[in-house]
Structures are given as C-alpha cells and as structure tokens.
C-alpha cells in the first residue's frame, strides 16, 4: 500500500508547479462561485473541464509519472501531449476569461495585474506571441525544438533544462489554445476570426504528422539518451520510439480536429443568432 502512495508523490518536487496548479484551480473555483452569486452562472461542464485539465497537468508533472517520462521516450511524449495539447485545451474550455476575473481578488487586479497587463512591453509581447503567424509557428516549433536529438539529450540530463522544456510547452499551449478557443463575442479586442483559427489548426497538423511519422518509421534509435540513462523497464528502443511516434502523430492531430469542430460549431451558432429575423411587432 505504501508503495502505491509513493507513486502519487512528486518524483522531483517543484514548488512552481504546485503553486501554479493551486492558484489556477483555487482562483477558478472562487470565481466560479462568485459568478453564480452575481447572477451570471457558468455551467458545471466548464468547471469539470477546467479542473480536469489542471489535475492532469499536475499529475503528469508531479507524480511517479514524471519519473517514467524521464526514462521512457513514449511516456515523455504522452506527458507532452497533456502539457501541450490536452491539459490547456480542457482548461480553455472552462471559460477562464469569464471566470478568473471574478476569482482574482479585485485589489490585486487593480494594483498589480491591470497595470502590468496594460504596460507596453507586456502588450507588445502578447501581440507578438498571439500573432496569427507566430502562434502556430511557436506551437509546432517548440515540439520540433525539444525533439532535436542534441537538444533532447541535454534536456533529459539537466534538471533545469528539463523544467524549462516542460514549462515552455505548457505556457505556450495555454496561449495557443486560448487563441483558438477564445469564447468572447465578435469584435472583442485581440480576438481572432473563426476562419483564421481553422486555418491555424489545419496548418499545425502536417508538421506534427511528419515528426510523428519520422519517429514511428525510423529504422534506428534517434534518441540515445534513453539508452544511456536507462529505460524505466526493459523495452526495445525501437518499440519505445515507434509508440512515441504514434503518440506524437495521432492524438496530437486529433486535438486539431476536435478544435476545428468546436470552432465550426461556434461559428455556425453565432451566424444563426445574428441572422435571426428581428421580432416583428405589429
């Protein structure tokens, strides 16, 4: 029994991850309750989706799963599937743009967040990162960057680079999926059109297929660091790499498909609302 609990404890404790998850979850819950009270309730599904995302992110970073991710290529890919795709995707379905402003203490927003948010460097950086060309490039670029064999080698050896890798995947994904799933109405500042979102989601698919297929179909082992440092359990390096390739390839691209469907649904329903004939009063 004690050995089972052991798997739920962090392999390498990170105060930053704990703080991020506690704040992300706690502030959301507070905001969700206050939304209810203020008469603008947000449903249960967004709540469930958002918290599932936060819990998944915590689990892959702060349990025995993290040990496996350091010593098995395909589990590392699964970890990044959660950090770069699934976790932030689920969080953004939880309407954080509506809920979190209610959750963050107002004084803190007024004194710290609002001035920071409206400061020129932050605005500039945000505009750059959320640019319709930069965002997909960064989203796919990070996957490629950390999978360059030499970069991957050092990221798996150095504890600080490993953390940098995981944080960069997570933070970029939060920005990316916010851009894609942004639920604000038309003409909201900085909001991307539905057509552009679909184009972006489509654009990021082929590069992910290519790198996934490259791994899955390679004849020899591309990432020697797992041979050098030892795998979590005995498995052939090629089998490990083939599964890793499939994880990088198929579920990651499915997230794009699901994204497109969600954007389409919103697009259609918005069109329908705006084209409804005004009620005739006689």
């Amino acid at each position: 029994m004690t050995s089972d609990i052991h798997y739920l404890l962090p392999w390498e404790f990170s105060p930053a991850v704990l703080l991020f998850c506690l704040l992300a979850g706690g502030l959301y819950l507070r905001g969700w309750r206050r939304c209810r009270r203020s008469g603008q309730p947000v449903g249960y599904w967004p709540l469930v989706s958002y918290l599932t995302g936060v819990v998944l992110i915590y689990l892959v970073m702060q349990t025995g799963f993290d040990y496996l991710a350091q010593h098995m290529l395909w589990i590392h890919r699964l970890q990044h599937l959660v950090l770069h795709h699934l976790g932030p995707f689920l969080m953004m379905l939880g309407l954080p743009g509506t809920v979190l402003p209610y959750g963050v203490p107002q004084r803190f927003t007024a004194a710290v967040l609002a001035p920071l948010w409206h400061s020129a460097p932050v605005r500039l950086l945000y505009a750059l990162l959320q640019n319709a060309l930069v965002a997909p490039l960064l989203f796919v670029g990070l996957i490629y960057f950390w999978l360059l064999p030499d970069i991957h080698f050092t990221a798996m050896l150095s504890a600080s680079r490993y953390q940098l890798m995981n944080w960069s995947m997570l933070l970029d994904a939060l920005l990316f999926w916010w851009l894609i799933l942004d639920p604000r109405p038309r003409h909201a500042a900085g909001r991307l059109g539905y057509g552009a979102r679909i184009v972006i989601l489509t654009l990021v698919v082929p590069p992910q297929i290519i790198i996934g297929a490259h791994m899955a179909l390679a004849k020899d082992s591309l990432y020697s660091v797992y041979n050098v440092c030892g795998r979590a359990w005995p498995i052939s390096p090629l089998v490990d790499q083939q599964i890793a390739g499939l994880v990088t390839w198929i579920p990651a691209c499915m997230m794009s498909v699901i994204g497109v469907l969600l954007v389409l649904r919103r697009w259609i329903s918005e069109n329908r609302e705006s084209s409804l004939p005004a009620p005739v009063v006689s």
């Binding site: 798996m156 440092c229 979590a232 005995p234």
Partner: peptide, 24 residues
C-alpha cells in the same frame, strides 16, 4: 536520481537469478 539514471530488477528465474537494468 541525482544523475538522472534509472535501474530496475527483472523477474527471478527458478534458480533465483534475475537481470538488472541499469544505465550505460
């Protein structure tokens, strides 16, 4: 853990011999 390497034990055979996976 300090040097980010893993090791583990395989199943013992009838004579109690087992393999150990370790880093290279």
């Amino acid at each position: 853990k300090r040097y980010r390497v893993s090791y583990g034990y395989g199943k013992a055979d009838a004579r109690g011999r087992y393999e150990v996976s370790h880093s290279s």
